[in-house]
Simulated assay, not measured.
Amino acid sequence: MTALKVRDLSKTFPIGGGLLGRARAGVRAVRPMSFEVQTGETLGIVGESGCGKSTLARMLVGLLEPTTGRIEIEDRPLDNADPAAFGKLIQYVFQDPVSSLNPRKTIKQIMEAPLKRLYGLDAEERMGRIREIFASVNLREEFLDRYPHEFSGGQAQRIGIARALAAAPRIIILDEPVSALDVSVQAQVLNLLAGLREEFNLTYLFISHDLAVVEAVSDRIMVLYFGSVVEIGPAEEVFKTPRHPYTKLLADSAPVVGRALSAPEQKDSELPDPLNPPTGCAFAGRCPRATERCLTAEPELKPLGEHQLAACHHPLEG
């Protein structure tokens, strides 16, 4: 069953309002993209800073209104859905576990909010549900009367995950959920997420810059560059045999224990100017395989092999 369908989703931020308040220009943070995620699947989303990962995630959970496109969860369109409809279907786990929790409220108050607003449960029903969730994420009930600043990063992230689970969502967006944690705690949280996916039949969209983590937890991987999908396919194949030069660049850039750090491209290489986007392929200026065609024609995302898709005029051999 398809959990999530995205069709031609894009986001442009207007900038430079004039005397009449009209925007003089716009930044296309996410260019029209389409993809699907199956129920119970983990889709990893990778790309360097500024590629549109977090903007995409915020559109999917209703925190940002798309400029164009359509979002469907289990064939239910969310074009004009109210916040409660989003909340019951899809939830967000943030990167910084402590700052994502309201410092003025106890953990009990934080946990009760979705149960009150989304489901209207009474006090006894709320406590019953909270006890179940806390048991699932290995948290003690005595934590409920404490405040967020009293917890370590790992504990706070478990609370953030518990808060997301309280809404009984079908899909959870995990935006860099372990990047702020120590390595030993990262492993604990990742194992917890794997167990919760099985227990509650959840679907994950896992956003991270850590390619090793993404490859370990994901069934498929979607690579973003300058607001566009440049490659998508099974996790093992995408990094073992990347078809887009940018995916290979990411894989070659990732630190590996025992291997000296090296720069796979020029030091001044960076994303194109969003206010003056290039014609053709946005990656052409950094790509060793670029030709004249790449500078004038934007490549389409198309199948390459049995499972992978890539947007490249001159894809790498599989």
Results as ranks from 00 to 15, higher is better:
54 S>K: 11
54 S>V: 12
55 T>M: 03
58 R>N: 09
58 R>I: 05
60 L>A: 04
60 L>F: 06
60 L>N: 06
61 V>C: 11
61 V>Y: 02
61 V>A: 02
63 L>Y: 07
64 L>A: 12
64 L>F: 14
65 E>A: 11
66 P>A: 04
68 T>R: 15
69 G>R: 08
69 G>V: 13
69 G>D: 09
70 R>Y: 01
70 R>S: 10
71 I>P: 06
71 I>G: 01
72 E>M: 13
72 E>P: 12
72 E>D: 15
72 E>I: 02
75 D>C: 11
77 P>A: 04
77 P>I: 04
77 P>C: 08
78 L>N: 00
78 L>T: 00
79 D>Q: 05
79 D>W: 00
80 N>I: 04
80 N>Y: 13
81 A>K: 02
83 P>A: 10
84 A>S: 14
84 A>M: 11
85 A>V: 00
86 F>M: 00
88 K>M: 12
88 K>C: 06
88 K>D: 04
88 K>T: 11
89 L>K: 00
91 Q>I: 07
91 Q>W: 14
92 Y>T: 03
93 V>C: 03
93 V>H: 05
94 F>K: 05
95 Q>G: 08
95 Q>F: 06
96 D>T: 11
96 D>G: 06
97 P>K: 07
97 P>H: 07
99 S>R: 14
100 S>A: 15
100 S>H: 11
100 S>Y: 08
100 S>E: 12
100 S>C: 13
101 L>V: 11
102 N>V: 13
102 N>H: 10
103 P>N: 10
103 P>D: 11
103 P>R: 13
103 P>H: 13
104 R>H: 13
105 K>N: 10
106 T>D: 12
106 T>E: 09
106 T>M: 13
107 I>Q: 12
108 K>Q: 14
108 K>T: 08
108 K>A: 12
109 Q>S: 15
